[in-house]
Design a protein around this nucleic acid. Structure first.
Lengths: 202, 202
DNA sequence: CGACTGTCTGGCACTCAGTGCCAGCCAGTC
DNA sequence: GACTGGCTGGCACTGAGTGCCAGACAGTCG
């Protein structure tokens, strides 16, 4: 297990290459569009072979969405750390709020978001990632609702988590449409309020 | 414009071929799995060329999900016909409830559902279709909420519609997991109740 | 009847994503 | 200096999806 941050040379090199592919590819995506950029383009620009590219990323979409998988874990940890007094919705909302956003400045994030919401294959993949988050977060919500572990048929937790993430998605789209003028946090709260009929606790 | 149901010979032939491809492909999917069935297999079994297949279906997923696009329209019509007294959630729920389900017997539907929830590419496409439904249904919900037409930034209707469809999805998954033992309708109501904190009107 | 038009069809060649296989390179180890 | 193990590039392949073209054929007009 890796105790020191700089482990083997191998590992460090690999991380450096990973970061460079990401950066190079993102530049190309933002310049000429996601679909118009082929993997050959990326590999050539990054100075690696096509074959090696696929050893770093399983799909082209993973370049853009790779971080989302890791972020799911962060949200789960954050959710489990929320005080027991918070109800399911409040705990979820606060977990999303406090989970560290990894990445870029706002202007770049906005560009990436626009690309994400406009490109069908990216949108589909991002929703798949949300499904993954859903699976990660549901157990903790089940625990908070007091659902018995052996109760396979209680879908309340699934519904709540899924709708929370849907609200996040709707808010994200609105944020993108507004060119980032409204805060994403406020938009998520608006969405949740609209759905639940009343505002959640701060 | 087509007034009689049996228009030109062209049209009728085309519909017949369409139906036959669908049936043939479905048989193959249920027999050996979606991903394990190639388009060449389908074309060969249906007695058409590979190239012609793509004149009937844009993608392999469309064979399974083709009807969903048409169903969105039916739901929209149903929604617009709901009495004005019903609030947004109730109207949506009733619209989904009353929209005619086109297709197969229950046992086949269950098999298709299982395939759908297990195959990533199919799941992703079906969620894309839900996004399309969302776009269709949101205007009517905006109208019911009294949102001004020029108000671009009100995301309440989007949130409500999106979460309703998410509930449908969660319920569909639970229905599949339960091997169809619980009624889909009850499951949707359970999901909505869990999310909203109280049961909607019947 | 024959010419014409529009739509469907199959076949070919192509792009692009993604995978399996193999041979070579090179850091770290004994 | 030989050995191991992870990484690399190159090659060939499958499978989805598209563009193009030539031929078949129903329906129409003269």
């Amino acid at each position: 297990m890796p105790t020191a941050s700089d482990q083997k040379l191998w590992t460090r090199t690999r991380q450096a290459v990973y970061a460079e592919i990401t950066q190079t590819a993102m530049d190309l995506f933002l310049e000429r569009g996601f679909e118009a950029t082929t993997i050959d383009d990326i590999a050539a620009a990054a100075g690696i072979s096509r074959r090696s590219f696929f050893r770093y990323f399983g799909t082209k979409e993973d370049i853009v969405l790779g971080d989302l998988a890791a972020q799911g874990e962060l949200i789960r940890k954050e959710l489990e750390a929320r005080p027991a007094a918070e109800d399911a919705w409040t705990a979820l909302l606060n977990a999303l709020r406090h989970a560290p956003r990894l990445g870029q400045d706002d202007a770049t994030m906005l560009k990436i978001s626009k690309m994400l919401y406009r490109t069908p294959s990216l949108r589909a993949r991002s929703i798949e990632k949300h499904l993954h988050w859903q699976a990660l977060l549901t157990p903790e919500i089940r625990r908070r609702l007091g659902v018995a572990l052996n109760d396979e048929h209680d879908l309340r937790a699934d519904a709540i988590v899924a709708c929370m993430l849907t609200c996040l998605d709707v808010a994200g789209e609105a944020w993108t449409r507004s060119d980032g003028r409204q805060s994403l946090e406020d938009l998520v709260v608006s969405a949740v309020t609209a759905v639940r009929g009343s505002a959640p606790d701060a």
